[in-house]
């Protein structure tokens, strides 16, 4: 069977669970269904590869730094709170 004549309903059905498959959250039998499908459907396999890359790119995004002035203001607020809670 080529990817041109296989049952597209299987593509649709697996499409729904793709993220769970990628995250290893499916049972072994469900994973095997994906692996078997990919042997007949290079299109779905390429799609999963694109999804994996997209997830890796999101995972690799750098985190913005807390601006110094916000950090300073926070530490000052905490100090003021401490002072009001424990007046000397």
């Amino acid at each position: 069977m080529t990817h041109h004549d296989h049952d597209r309903r299987e593509c649709r059905s697996l499409f729904e669970q793709l993220s769970e498959y990628m995250d290893g959250e499916l049972r072994e039998s469900a994973c095997s269904r994906f692996d078997e499908h990919f042997r007949d459907c290079p299109r779905c396999e390429q799609f999963v590869e694109q999804m994996r890359k997209a997830v890796r790119l999101v995972e690799g995004m750098p985190c913005p730094k807390l601006p110094d002035e916000v950090r300073r203001a926070l530490l000052a607020s905490a100090e003021a709170l401490d002072d009001s809670a424990n007046p000397s």
């Binding site: 913005p64 916000v70 950090r71 926070l74």
Partner: peptide, 23 residues
């Protein structure tokens, strides 16, 4: 601090809101 600020920036969009959220 950084993780919370980063979360705020991405969720609230505007930096001013993210600063409020972080504080």
């Amino acid at each position: 601090g950084d993780r919370i600020y980063g979360f705020g920036v991405r969720m609230c969009g505007e930096r001013e809101d993210a600063r409020d959220v972080a504080q």
